Simulated scan of single mutants.
Amino acid sequence: MTTVRIHLTRHGEVFNPDGILYGRIPGYGLSDTGRAMAERLGEWFPENTEAIRALVQSPLQRAQETMAPIARALDMDPVTDERVIEAANQFEGLKVAQDVKKPANLVKVYNPFRPSWGEPYVEQVHRMRAAMATLRTRLTGIARAEGLDTVEGVVVSHQLPIWVTRLAAEGRPLWHDPRKRECALASVTSFTFSDATLEDMLYTDVCADLQPQKAVPGA
């Protein structure tokens, strides 16, 4: 029996002085603190894992900049998977503190359970699970070829897709209060599988001391 562990990792803090909900908008890279978070992850993974054999990243800049120190530390080349991208959101480009609350935008918030303003939660779960299944199959093949009992992979993605994937795995409703997500910047949510069966999940706030004092817009 092969143990496969997949570490869903949120990107580091983004440079976003205007408080824009950036979503999938290109050009949003890491802040100085975000780069420090990424470097911390590059130190953390070699020290806290057994056999990482695959790296997967979102196509967005902030995820790829977060992955870079990890890839460098492990001397591995990441692959980009569109399925682990940030959730689509109709509020992209708006300032969270003021624009989202305008009447023309509030009408989009008619169904928080779906949610009506963006990519449905269930669709996020489906694409994330598909990406994880592909990675799990790849890692299982590597484990058999190398004679490993345990093999691991790292996926750098985004808060909401990671969080709803965890909620689904725990059998909880996908609708939630965004303020209560346990998915801090540069945190790691680890899924452990025995063959195709999920056996365990573990959340680690790797950069607890570097977290901002207030919520960060943009995800």
Results as ranks from 00 to 15, higher is better:
residue 1 M to K: 09
residue 1 M to A: 14
residue 2 T to E: 10
residue 3 T to H: 03
residue 4 V to I: 12
residue 8 L to I: 02
residue 13 E to Y: 02
residue 15 F to H: 14
residue 16 N to C: 11
residue 16 N to W: 06
residue 17 P to G: 08
residue 17 P to R: 09
residue 18 D to A: 14
residue 18 D to L: 12
residue 19 G to D: 04
residue 23 G to F: 01
residue 23 G to I: 04
residue 24 R to P: 04
residue 25 I to F: 07
residue 25 I to E: 00
residue 25 I to W: 01
residue 26 P to F: 03
residue 26 P to I: 01
residue 26 P to M: 01
residue 27 G to T: 08
residue 28 Y to G: 09
residue 29 G to H: 06
residue 31 S to G: 04
residue 34 G to D: 03
residue 35 R to P: 01
residue 35 R to I: 09
residue 36 A to I: 05
residue 38 A to P: 10
residue 39 E to P: 07
residue 40 R to W: 04
residue 40 R to A: 15
residue 42 G to M: 02
residue 43 E to T: 13
residue 43 E to K: 09
residue 47 E to L: 15
residue 47 E to F: 10
residue 51 A to E: 10
residue 51 A to D: 09
residue 53 R to V: 05
residue 53 R to C: 08
residue 54 A to L: 10
residue 55 L to E: 02
residue 59 P to Q: 01
residue 61 Q to A: 14
residue 62 R to G: 06
residue 65 E to C: 04
residue 66 T to S: 15
residue 68 A to H: 10
residue 70 I to W: 05
residue 71 A to T: 05
residue 73 A to K: 03
residue 74 L to F: 10
residue 74 L to W: 07
residue 75 D to W: 06
residue 75 D to K: 14
residue 75 D to C: 14
residue 77 D to S: 12
residue 78 P to H: 00
residue 78 P to G: 06
residue 78 P to E: 03
residue 80 T to E: 03
residue 87 A to C: 12
residue 90 Q to S: 14
residue 91 F to Y: 11
residue 93 G to L: 02
residue 93 G to E: 05
residue 93 G to K: 03
residue 94 L to E: 05
residue 94 L to C: 03
residue 97 A to F: 04
residue 99 D to I: 01
residue 99 D to R: 05
residue 100 V to T: 08
residue 100 V to I: 11
residue 100 V to Q: 03
residue 103 P to Q: 12
residue 104 A to S: 15
residue 104 A to M: 05
residue 104 A to Y: 10
residue 106 L to E: 07
residue 106 L to S: 13
residue 108 K to W: 12
residue 111 N to F: 01
residue 111 N to D: 15
residue 112 P to W: 08
residue 113 F to C: 13
residue 120 P to K: 08
residue 120 P to E: 05
residue 121 Y to H: 12
residue 121 Y to S: 09
residue 124 Q to W: 07
residue 125 V to M: 12
residue 126 H to R: 15
residue 126 H to I: 14
residue 127 R to V: 11
residue 128 M to P: 07
residue 128 M to E: 06
residue 130 A to L: 11
residue 131 A to M: 04
residue 132 M to Q: 14
residue 133 A to W: 03
residue 137 T to K: 15
residue 139 L to K: 06
residue 141 G to I: 00
residue 142 I to R: 03
residue 143 A to F: 08
residue 145 A to H: 13
residue 147 G to M: 01
residue 148 L to E: 06
residue 150 T to K: 10
residue 151 V to H: 07
residue 152 E to N: 10
residue 155 V to D: 02
residue 159 Q to M: 14
residue 162 I to C: 08
residue 164 V to G: 09
residue 165 T to A: 10
residue 166 R to T: 13
residue 173 P to D: 08
residue 174 L to C: 05
residue 175 W to Y: 13
residue 176 H to D: 11
residue 177 D to A: 11
residue 178 P to Y: 04
residue 180 K to M: 15
residue 181 R to Q: 13
residue 184 A to L: 05
residue 185 L to S: 08
residue 188 V to I: 03
residue 188 V to A: 07
residue 188 V to R: 02
residue 190 S to M: 11
residue 191 F to C: 12
residue 192 T to E: 14
residue 194 S to G: 09
residue 195 D to I: 00
residue 195 D to Y: 04
residue 195 D to S: 14
residue 196 A to R: 15
residue 196 A to D: 15
residue 197 T to G: 10
residue 198 L to Y: 03
residue 199 E to M: 15
residue 201 M to T: 14
residue 202 L to V: 09
residue 205 D to W: 00
residue 206 V to D: 00
residue 209 D to Q: 05
residue 217 P to Q: 01
residue 218 G to Q: 04
